[in-house]
Simulated assay, not measured.
Amino acid sequence: MSLRSLLTSGLVCFCAGGLYGWSALIAPVQAAYGVTTAQTGLIFSLAIVSFTVAVILAPRLPVQTSTPRAVACFGLFGAMGVLAAARMPEFGFFLLWFSGGFGAASGGIYIAALGVAASSPAHKIATPAMVAAFGTGGAVFGPLWRVMDAEGYGLDGLLLLAAGLGGCSVLVALTSKPGFPMRSTPRAERVTPARPGQSTQVLAMIWTIFAFGSFGGLMVLGLASKMMDVAGAGVALGSLGLAGIALGNTSGRLSVALLTQHLQPQTCMLMAMGLTLAGLATAAFHLNPVMLCVALILVATGYGVVASTVPVMTRAAFGADDFAKRFSVVFSAWGVAGFLAPWAGGVMFDMRDSFMLPLLCAMGAALVCGWVSVRLPRRATLKGLSDP
């Protein structure tokens, strides 16, 4: 795997992360189609479903998808979906092309690009960097779309994403080796670092770690804006807090590339839970809005570490050959947490008109994540950590 192919795949992954900037599209979508806020809420909900389904199914296609060429193919499909969505005359067709088409393509790009990173010699650096590239895409395209909408571009702002996806995908195709090999090694014959008797147990434990680690972070981060409003943070402080959350999330993801050079994935996960619990405790007993913003940034940083550590942990436990299929199962934990956590947090807030119950629930989830991380067999990841 050449460095050039890895970098160009990262560029496509960055563009695919534009899916996370979806909230900036609410105003132009409402202006274009005259729909309600509830209807625009379907955009991301259905996109996450498409994304998760694609992550699970892509590694099970009859062709090898952990290659730069696969990243390019998914990228071109995503560019087509975004371009079509920008030109649809009705909301239903926009939903089909953006949430269904681009959502699925984004999931395919994500799992294929992670497979490319996991197959590289420097996988302990490349994998978290690829995860960070995807998250950074949302942090960049969201603000860009807001600025473009303010300038009157509306849904034409999507053309920027379509151009980025298309151009980077062509670049990947041109710089990668030709060929799109079929899978030839039977599943039963592929060897993984984990012992056969441990495989199911280890996979279930990593799934649980990802589910509870994500749940604790997402429950609070999904309510971050409202928490700052209730605490009395003004517009300036609230905007600064949201920017800090995005920065904390991204820096947490990137930090794993350095941490895993010296620490086991389980140790990184415990550090993530330490940051999360410190942030949750500070949020629960904050004395002023500034402390709350700092608390939310700590939680976001811990969540970012979780997001990057889990793929590294999966690769270490099962090896490069089986990484994509195994991680596609593990990733469903994020889908469950992403669907349930923000909703459950909102319900708990409405019950007591207080954020204390969601914060306590998030603390419990973080403790479960830390406990399962400690219980994860060390020998399941030692071999991966010693790989070059």
Rank of each mutant, 00 (worst) to 15 (best):
M351G: 06
V305R: 02
S386P: 05
L203V: 04
A38N: 09
K383N: 07
S184T: 14
F91G: 01
M219F: 06
R146G: 15
G92S: 14
P388T: 08
G370P: 03
T127H: 03
L280A: 05
V374M: 12
L298D: 00
A204F: 13
I245L: 14
L367W: 05
A188Y: 12
V230W: 08
T260H: 08
T8E: 08
I297L: 09
I56Y: 14
S45R: 11
S184R: 14
L296W: 04
Q39C: 04
A365V: 07
A257C: 10
T175M: 11
S176C: 15
A24N: 09
A79F: 04
L376V: 01
A337F: 03
L57V: 15
M348S: 07
A324R: 05
F102C: 04
V172K: 09
L203Q: 07
F74I: 13
L76V: 09
G364S: 14
A105L: 09
V172N: 04
G238Q: 12
A129C: 13
M80G: 05
F94I: 08
A341E: 05
A281K: 12
I56D: 00
F77A: 15
V55R: 06
H123K: 14
Q64I: 09
T208R: 03
G137D: 07
M269V: 09
L242G: 08
A324L: 06
P311Q: 09
C268P: 01
G137E: 06
G338S: 14
S120Q: 10
M273V: 08
T301Y: 01
G166Y: 08
G304W: 02
L161G: 02
G78I: 11
A47Y: 10
A295Y: 02
T8V: 11
V305N: 03
W371V: 14
A307L: 09
Q30W: 06
C361Y: 00
A162E: 05
T192H: 04
A84R: 11
C361V: 15
D353N: 14
T136F: 08
L280K: 02
G154F: 10
G319R: 02
Q30N: 10
Q266V: 04
A162C: 10
A295G: 14
S23N: 12
A295V: 10
R315M: 07
C168N: 07
L160T: 11
V336N: 07
T250G: 02
L382R: 15
I206M: 01
M228C: 09
G345M: 07
S119F: 01
L376G: 02
R352L: 11
M363E: 13
A211V: 10
G364W: 10
D321N: 08
S255M: 10
P181L: 11
S9Q: 06
S5I: 13
D350C: 00
S66Q: 12
P28R: 13
P128V: 04
A204R: 13
V55Q: 07
Q64Y: 00
I297G: 00
G167N: 06
K177H: 13
G238D: 09
